[in-house]
Amino acid sequence: MQIYYKIMPNFLRLIIGFAFLGAAVALMVFSFWGWGILLVFLSILIFVTFFYNEHMLLAQWYLRKDNMEKAAQALARIKNFEKELYKPQYGYYSLLIGLIESRKAPMKSEKHFKQALSFGLQMSHNIALAKLSLAGIAIGKRNKREAQMYLTEAKKADKNKLLADQIKQIKDQMGMMDKQQQVRYTR
């Protein structure tokens, strides 16, 4: 019974998407092109929300707009992520929570980034983002060895060089940490 409750809304969404697509084709056959194209776009929207949770999409949009409160509210609508999301989305859910939490309390967001990596992320730049965030947290804890490990892993994962500036900033912070340690030893 519990599995039926979990799967039914998604299958219902899929059935509605195919119904809209069929209606769009029928409207185009009868020369109602405007309405047909509108229904094609609506069916595409329904199919996108079948594969990607709409609350996570809203949270990503709010994160891009730098509105953390609304992003947190959008993610809070997901009550039990294991029931509402597909398994490949677990990592992205944890990554989004980690990004929101890192603005409030950076040291508390470490568990979410590690959880995102353990669940698995498919895109290499998201893996690099999680590891870069973990490197920043390790620097905050003054753990240079761990920060260096995460930084090299982030550099490997960032194949398209999307995070090159942030990686350079973390390296600079590590250099500042080395200088501070040298000053302590010379005193």
Rank of each mutant, 00 (worst) to 15 (best):
G175W: 06
F20R: 08
F51S: 00
N126E: 15
L132V: 06
L85W: 05
Q182V: 10
P9N: 07
Y62G: 06
G34W: 02
P88R: 09
Y90S: 03
Q115D: 14
A59M: 05
R13W: 00
E84Y: 03
A71Q: 06
K155L: 08
I97C: 09
F41A: 13
Y62W: 11
N160R: 12
I97A: 05
D66N: 13
Q182M: 11
A23P: 05
V40T: 10
V183P: 03
M8T: 14
Q182T: 05
A72V: 13
W33L: 11
K79S: 11
A147P: 00
G136A: 11
Y150N: 08
M174F: 06
A26M: 09
E101G: 04
I37S: 01
K70Y: 12
L129Q: 04
W35T: 09
A116G: 03
I137M: 06
L63P: 00
D66V: 09
L129N: 04
Q148D: 10
V29M: 10
S109T: 05
M174V: 04
M176H: 04
S94L: 13
Q73Y: 09
V48T: 11
L27A: 09
F11C: 05
R64T: 04
K108A: 11
K168H: 07
I127R: 00
L132D: 03
G17C: 14
N126D: 12
R77S: 10
R187I: 14
F30C: 04
L151T: 06
V183L: 14
K114W: 05
A23N: 11
W35P: 00
Y52P: 06
I170L: 12
I44W: 08
H55L: 06
S31K: 08
S43T: 07
Q166L: 10
P9G: 04
K87L: 05
A128K: 00
I97P: 05
L75F: 01
Y150Q: 09
I37G: 05
Q180A: 15
G34P: 01
F18Y: 12
F41C: 12
I37Y: 04
S43Q: 02
R64I: 03
N67Q: 10
T49E: 10
R142M: 10
Q169C: 08
F20L: 15
F11E: 08
E101I: 03
H125R: 08
K79P: 00
A71F: 00
L27E: 07
T186D: 13
R187D: 10
E101W: 05
F81G: 01
L42S: 07
A24W: 03
R187P: 00
G120P: 00
I100D: 01
I7M: 14
Q115G: 09
K87V: 13
L96W: 00
K65E: 11
V29Y: 12
G36S: 05
I7Q: 14
M8R: 15
D178Q: 10
L129M: 12
Q2G: 13
